[in-house]
Nucleic acid binder design. Sequence first.
DNA 1: CGTACCGTTGAGGTGAGTCAAAGTAAGTGG
DNA 2: CCACTTACTTTGACTCACCTCAACGGTACG
Lengths: 240, 240
Amino acid sequence: MNRLRSPINFFGFNTGGQAEWGLLSPAGAELLDRSRRVQPHRRGDAIFLQGDESRGVYCVESGHVLLWRIDAFGNETVFGIVAPGEIMGYRSCFAEEPHAATARALIPCRVWFISRATVDQLLDDNPAIARWFLRMIARDRGPREGLLLRGHHLPVRVRLVNLLLVLRERFAETFPDGRLVFELPLARHEIAAMLGVRPETITRTIRELEDEGVASFNGREVAVPKLEKLLDVAGFEAPV
Amino acid sequence: MNRLRSPINFFGFNTGGQAEWGLLSPAGAELLDRSRRVQPHRRGDAIFLQGDESRGVYCVESGHVLLWRIDAFGNETVFGIVAPGEIMGYRSCFAEEPHAATARALIPCRVWFISRATVDQLLDDNPAIARWFLRMIARDRGPREGLLLRGHHLPVRVRLVNLLLVLRERFAETFPDGRLVFELPLARHEIAAMLGVRPETITRTIRELEDEGVASFNGREVAVPKLEKLLDVAGFEAPV
DNA sequence: CGTACCGTTGAGGTGAGTCAAAGTAAGTGG
DNA sequence: CCACTTACTTTGACTCACCTCAACGGTACG
C-alpha cells in the first residue's frame, strides 16, 4: 500500500496503470467494443514507430511491450514496459504529435487499437474518462524522480538493482525463503538502454553484483538469493 | 544523424503554453473570474512547495517562476521556467499527488490560484477544456527529448548553449546584426541545476565558450556576438 | 561451416565530480 | 562611510565512473 515508496513509482516506469474502461456508459462500452481493432504481434514486432503520425491509442490485452526511442544523436533510450491492461501511445495522441517512441513486442502480444475519433467520442461519453486520462498522463513520468532523472546521480550498480526491483512483479518468481528468480525478457543492450549506459557497463556491473553475492546472472535468468540484499544495494532507506 | 528543429522542443522546457481560457463559455469565464485568487509574490517567494498537497492549479499573470525539485538523494534539479499566461501545478493536481516540485518567483510575480473544485467545474463547462489540458500535459516533457533525457549523452557545453537558445525568447534581446544580449534571471547554481551538473562545471564551461568566442558572460549578462555560432555549437540546422 | 548477433574482457582515455581555497559582490549594522 | 557577514563565483588539483575501441568467445541459424 506504500505506493510512493515502491520501485515502480520510484523508477517512473509505470505508463499509467490499468485502463478503466469500466467508467464507460453502456453505449460507450458498445462503441469501444465495435470500433477497437485487435492485433496479434510476434516477439520483436513493432506496434508503432517513432516518427509515425499518431492515429489513436493502444491498449495491451496480453504480453509485454517495450517503449524506446532514438534521440537526434543516435542514443537509444528505453523508457517503459507496458503490461497487459495498460495504455500506450496516448501521449502522442493527445499532444497531436508524431509518436515519440517505438513500441515493440517483447513477447507475443495482443494489442487493441482505438482510433482518435473513437477516443474523442469516449471523452464525450463520460467526463470521468477525460479525468481518468488526465490522471494517467499526469502520473506518467512527470517531474517526479524517474529513471532518467536519476541517471546523473546514481551509480549504475544502484540503477541496475532498482531496475530488477521494478521488473520483479512482472518477471520474477518470489519464493517463500526470500529467493527471487527472474526470467528477463531483455537483452543486455536493452537493459543498457533502460539505464542510459553502454552494454559493456552492464556486463561489468553484473560481474560486480555477482562478486558481492547480490545476484547471479545466467543469460536472461537472474537468481537473487535474498531480496533484502537487493533492497539494501538499491538504497531504499532513502527518504522519498 | 537527425538534426533538431527547435530548442524549445529539444529541451522540453515548455510547460504547456498559453492558457486558453477563451475556450470557456460565458458562464465558465464568469466562474473562473469569481473564484480565482490573485496573489502577488516577491522575488524568491515560494508559490507552492514540493511535498505540499496539491489544491488546484496556478496561472502566472506576470513575472517568471522557476520549478525545481530535490530528489531523495539531495540533488536539486530545475526543470522549468513558467512564463506569463502559462499554467503550473497542473500535473500534481490531476495526478492527485503532492507537488513534485517547488515553484519560486524568479522576479516579482502575480499568480492566479484556481482550486481543484473550480477546475473540475471548468472541465464540465466545456469538453474542449479537458482536451486542452490533455494536450498541454501530453506535450509537457514527455518521452520526447528533454533536458534530463539528454543529460547522459551530451557534453555540458552543448547543453548550456541549448539552454541559452531556450531562454532566448524570454530573456534576450536580439539585435539586427545577429547579436544577442541576455539578462538572465538565473544564478550559476540554478543554471547548473537545469543542466544536472555542478556550478563549478558551469563556470568552466562558460570559460570554454568565451575562449571559443561563442559568448561572453559578465555576471548574469551574456553577450553573444553571432547567433549562428550558438546554433552551430548546439548542433542545430538552420532554424525552420 | 560460415555468418551474424550477443555477450564478455581488457586497455586506455576523459568529462565531470569532489574538495579545498581564494576572490568577489551584496547586504547589514554601527 | 566603513567593518563585517554572507552568499555567490571562480580556480586548481585530484579522482573516478563510465565511455570508446578492439578483440574474442559463445550460440543460433541458415
